[in-house]
Design a protein around this nucleic acid. Structure first.
Length: 287
DNA sequence: ATATGGCCCTGGTTGC
DNA sequence: TGCAACCAGGGCCATA
């Protein structure tokens, strides 16, 4: 499932490949997933826009789009990059979503819901078998720019991190997964950061000491940065914008390692359900 | 206000 | 061996 490191990897890849390109034509399948934006409005909004930049916010990919109508184009669809965005295309990959940069004659994957043909001759494709992904269009003349409700775990400061969990009557695992507290942490990195911090997933968030929370913040930061360096975790069918798998799944200490020996103490990894999610931990290392 | 559980989906796994 | 039932899981929404 794409979480912060996977979404960051995809956003960077898409940014490098399509920045300055222009959206010529939009095709949406019968299952085009509207995330507040109906398909017709989505297609109309995207067509003719320049792609100024692509970046990540939480688990969302945000495409900053230039003014409608090729303004600033040099005729090859290449656009000046200093323009202020006039619109945004927001992509959430859900569980199984992919955002791919391909050539038009590349084989069409099953469950391709959107194809954006670009002025450069390439295509941006949104593929999502399970259809938990969402696409949204925002016209910045009318709509507010997209922002995540939660803090970014890569940049949050120590005191701010500690304050997030104060008085919370839910498990630390549940708190980590709550996107309105921290934006971008999903099941893999919740489990992996709790292992690295030595904390049981069922501990109550509001009862953790300052020192424990500081350990957790550092563990989370380290695990996310490490995963980004390795191109994310490919556990189900995650691939980057070029269709290439990540390598961080090889570094997992607990996630999907039920019954296997802990890398630190050899105790078999256990699985339980916390906050409605499969949760993996070492009964020896995590207290 | 805050926390919990059901729901949406399909593909992979499990069980007979 | 083949098929069907089961289940994962992010975010949204209704409910407590």
């Amino acid at each position: 499932m794409p979480e912060l490191p996977e979404v960051e990897t995809i956003a960077r890849g898409v940014h490098e490949r399509v920045r300055g390109d222009c959206i010529r034509q939009v095709w949406l399948g019968t299952h085009a997933e509207p995330f507040k934006t109906p398909p017709a409005q989505l297609a109309e909004g995207l067509e003719g826009r320049a792609i100024l930049a692509v970046h990540r916010t939480g688990k969302h990919i945000v495409c900053e789009l230039g003014p409608w109508g090729n303004a600033g184009s040099n005729g090859k669809g290449v656009v000046r990059q200093s323009q202020e965005p006039s619109a945004q295309w927001i992509v959430h990959l859900g569980m199984t979503g992919r955002l791919l940069v391909t050539f038009p004659d590349a084989p069409l994957a099953a469950h391709t819901h959107a194809r954006l043909s670009l002025a450069s001759g390439r295509e941006l494709r949104f593929v999502d078998p399970r259809r938990f992904g969402r696409l949204e269009f925002r016209d910045l003349d009318r709509d507010p720019a997209f922002s995540a409700p939660g803090a970014d775990p890569l940049h949050i400061e120590s005191s701010e991190f500690v304050a997030l969990f104060r008085g919370r009557k839910l498990t630390i695992k549940g708190a980590l997964l709550n996107q309105s507290l921290l934006a971008g942490v999903g099941n893999i990195y919740a489990d992996e950061s709790l292992f690295r911090a030595g904390l049981r997933p069922r501990r109550m968030a509001g009862r953790l000491t300052k020192a424990e929370l500081e350990r957790l913040r550092k563990a989370l930061l380290e695990v996310l940065e490490h995963a980004i360096r390795l191109g994310g975790s490919s556990v189900s069918d995650y691939v980057d914008a070029d269709g290439v798998r990540g390598f961080f799944q090889l570094e997992h200490c607990v996630y999907l390692r039920t019954g296997q020996p802990c890398r630190r103490c050899q105790t078999p990894i256990r699985r339980m359900v916390v906050a409605g999610r499969g949760t993996h931990y070492c009964p020896q290392c995590q207290r």
